[in-house]
Every structure is written in C-alpha cells, then in structure tokens.
Amino acid sequence: MLTLLKQELFKAHKQNRLWIWLLLAFIFPIAVLAVFKGTRNVERLVGFGGGIPYIYLAAIIYSALSISQEFTFGTIRPLLSRRFNRLSIFISKIVLNFIVYIGLVVSAFIGTIIAKLIFVPKADFGKQMTDTLTAGQLWGIDTIHLFLEIIFISALVIMITNIVKSSGAAIGLGVVLSIGTPIISSISLSLIQLAPILKWNPLTILIGSSMLGITPDTTLNAIFHLNSMSIIIAYIVYIVLFYGIAYYIFRKRSV
C-alpha cells in the first residue's frame, strides 16, 4: 500500500495541474480581499475569503479525474497488471484524494491568514459570531463542514465516474451539488413533503451534515425530521455505499 501511495504522490507531484490548484487556493483569499475592499472583515475571513466554492470545484475535479484519467492515458493496464490487488490500488487513489483535499484547505487557510495580516490586521477571531460561537470557533466548524461535504460529494463523483465511465458527467453533478445549495435544499424539502421516507435521500443528508454542530437538534428535526445522530449515521452509510459501489465496478472492470 505504501508503495502504491508513493507512486500516486509521485504522479501527482509531477502534474502542473495540482500545483496550480494549490496556488490558486492560496491566492484566492488574498486576491478577493485585495480587490474588494468591502470584504475586508472577519466574516469573509471565516469563509476563506470566499474561496470555498473554488475548493469544492478543485476537489471534485481532482476526484473525478483520479481514476478516469488512468483510462484516458491508457495507464490503467500497467497499473492493474502487477502484484497488487485492485482494492489496494483503489484505496491508494482515495487516500491521495484526501491528501489533496487537505492540501487545498491548508493552502486556502495560509492564504486567508496572510490576507488577514495584510488587509485586516485588526480582525478579531475572538469576536462573537453567534450566541455560542466565536469567529475562530465558527471557522473551525465551517472547515469541518467543508471537509464533510467534499468527502460526501467526491465519493458520489467517484461512484458516478465509475458507473458512466466519464469524468465529465460526474464533475457536472459534483459542481451542481457543491454550489447549488439553495436548489438542493428546495429539492430535498420537497422530497420530504412528498413522502416521509424520502427524508433519507442523500441531498437531505448532505444539507443536514452542513448544519451539524451549529444547528440544534430541535431545528434539524423540524426541517428534516432527523436528529444529528441520524444524520451522522446516514452520512457514514452513504459514504460507504458510494465508495462500495465505485469499488465494486472498478474491481469487475475488464480493461
């Protein structure tokens, strides 16, 4: 497994695309605060200077291409015709994706801190943002939500990529899921009203997971008819299901 991961890291490190994405994640908050003076406040800093949609986009595209580009390049054959089993190969791809997600967030974080030092040095992360959370705490929770959503959407994207054998459709779906929150919420709530069982649909779980830790159970119950624990369990089940289906297809595929 370590060998496979080393190979994946080597390939990733040699790709200009990865470095450009990481650089853009770093520059984005600095550029936004430099250009738009109205955004020079702690609220914008907590949202990575408005860079969250970019992080989603980069993570989704990277996930979709992680397996599909091996087919595009024709490199899938030597990848699979070795002593390693397909599960190890699949896991090494997923682990690399996780490393890239972390890299994107860390780059955006460093960019945000530099933007703060340059443009809003007096911004106070101890400022009370909600009844219970300071700006710093909210940033931490938002970052966890960002990870949770990236992991959820990327798992879905990898599954779709494996099913339709094309990264394009999967990327499109991923982009809609990551930036079309109002539409998703509306569809999700409509589904719940249509039939109570549909509260378990993945859109509800995606939206619900983004409210964990900042929304009380009573509110979650009122909106989704689910409490935090149910959402967490359903979230994990969906992740396992998406990756499970993706791996099943990957394992069965003749190349």
């Binding site: 080597f10 200009n16 490199t75």
Partner: peptide
C-alpha cells in the same frame, strides 16, 4: 511481478519525462 508487458499501446503519463516513467514504474 516478473512479467513486463506492453499491451496495445504504451502506458504513458503525458506530464512525465522518460526518466520519470522509469522511476515511477521502478518503485514497485
């Protein structure tokens, strides 16, 4: 592990040099 192959078309990563390819495939 002890079988090399070239099936139908060469397995090339567009962003790697020839030496990079050898380093990559030698890792395992």
């Amino acid at each position: 592990d002890k079988v090399g192959n070239l099936i139908e078309y060469p397995a090339i990563y567009p962003n790697l040099t020839a030496l990079d390819h050898l380093k990559l495939y030698a890792m395992d």
